[in-house]
Design a protein around this nucleic acid. Structure first.
Lengths: 204, 204
DNA sequence: GCATTTACTAAACAGTGTTTATTATATTCA
DNA sequence: TGAATATAATAAACACTGTTTAGTAAATGC
């Protein structure tokens, strides 16, 4: 009965096809313009077919959201080679900001948009988020143990770091940094300077 | 020719009626469910009439966005009585966070959603945002002058403070704080503790 | 009192996410 | 192999959305 397995494989391939098309359209045109109909058009199937492979639009974008987390994690992992935990923390932060600035649509989906979080409510847990947050917790824990940063509750410190870098990136990607009335590259400069200052204040 | 003035007054009254209805629906049901048709239904006019008073949906929500800034400013102004600039800064931050937590929909419109910012592109300047940011700049300037906080560039420091409090609030209102796996009030506790720690690190 | 401007709306347009009933194909079993 | 069943795909519809157009009724100007 290899037919069942082939069918399962074909089903997965179709899911991949849909996700690949949706991802491409999403990165090119954004969330709103990536309609079920436009995906169907792209893969040359009818819109109704997509609903045989995904419950709704949210489920499609939840998968894209998870793929984006895998990409971020690949970037973050490059800091594993840094021995000093404080420098590793600095690396993680800069990597996070850089990822956000260079992949604003992915960042949006991961940390700003409501759509993928609706899916989490059903799944109870935000696995992707917890994994990335885990990196931060581990690094901060090492920093505290080696007294590289000011003493304080681990979770409070973690939220502090995350909130700060998220604030920088999200104000930027959602157009609020226009308040500085500076060209784009100067605004980015301020972003990184601001992060450096933050690190300096955190250091022991 | 008092007729012209009456007409102008009536036009403004109609605009107010639309904004009041839209605001009420927005705070009750959120942005997406506040459709032009639902507003029209509420004020007992046809949907097309709304377009005689507003260019599009964005323009309506831009006005609501501006009204929200006025409310925030009223809250922020209560800190004017605090003489010590550092304590005033602390007050401003806490007021900002509190406003965000208690008015998540307004906060969304002011600092997260793209809709009202489309309007700013046409108007060139984000007046509401600049006004609120001005409060922060003035207070920080006083802090620096009296050496209440670590020395540093005014704008870099301002972005640092704003990004941090925005990060806290926006991660919360967009459901990412679920990562802490804590009840809502405990999460809020962490938020405020995190802000206190931030202030302590900033203090000279 | 008549012409003109203003205020309003019904209906349509072009989209959206999603569901249902139907058809064509593939698989199973006698 | 041939009939019965299960699967895959779709056309069409449903209930929405923001927005525009053409036409009507009332208020205003002369």
């Amino acid at each position: 009965m290899a037919i069942k397995e082939r069918k399962e494989r074909e089903k997965q391939e179709m899911r991949n096809l849909i996700i690949e098309s949706a991802t491409q359209l999403f990165l090119k045109q954004g969330y709103d313009k990536t309609s079920i109909r436009s995906i169907a058009d792209d893969i040359e199937y009818s819109p109704a077919t997509i609903y045989l492979y995904f419950k709704d639009k949210d489920e499609i974008f939840f998968v894209i959201h998870e793929n984006a987390f895998e990409i971020l994690e690949q970037h973050l992992r490059r800091n594993d080679v840094i021995a000093d935990p404080f420098e590793r923390l600095a690396g993680l932060g800069r990597t996070y900001i850089e990822f956000g600035l260079q992949n604003p649509d992915y960042y949006d989906l991961m940390f700003i948009m409501r759509a993928p979080m609706e899916q989490i409510k059903n799944e109870e847990k935000w696995k992707s988020g917890e994994c990335a947050f885990g990196y931060l917790l581990t690094t901060l824990s090492a920093c505290l143990e080696e007294s590289k940063i000011r003493q304080g509750d681990l979770y409070v410190t973690a939220i502090q770091v995350w909130s700060f870098v998220h604030g920088l990136v999200s104000l930027y990607v959602r157009g609020r940094m226009c308040i500085l009335m500076m060209p784009d590259d100067a605004t980015r400069e301020i972003l990184y300077n601001s992060f450096d200052l933050f690190l300096a204040n955190l250091k022991k």
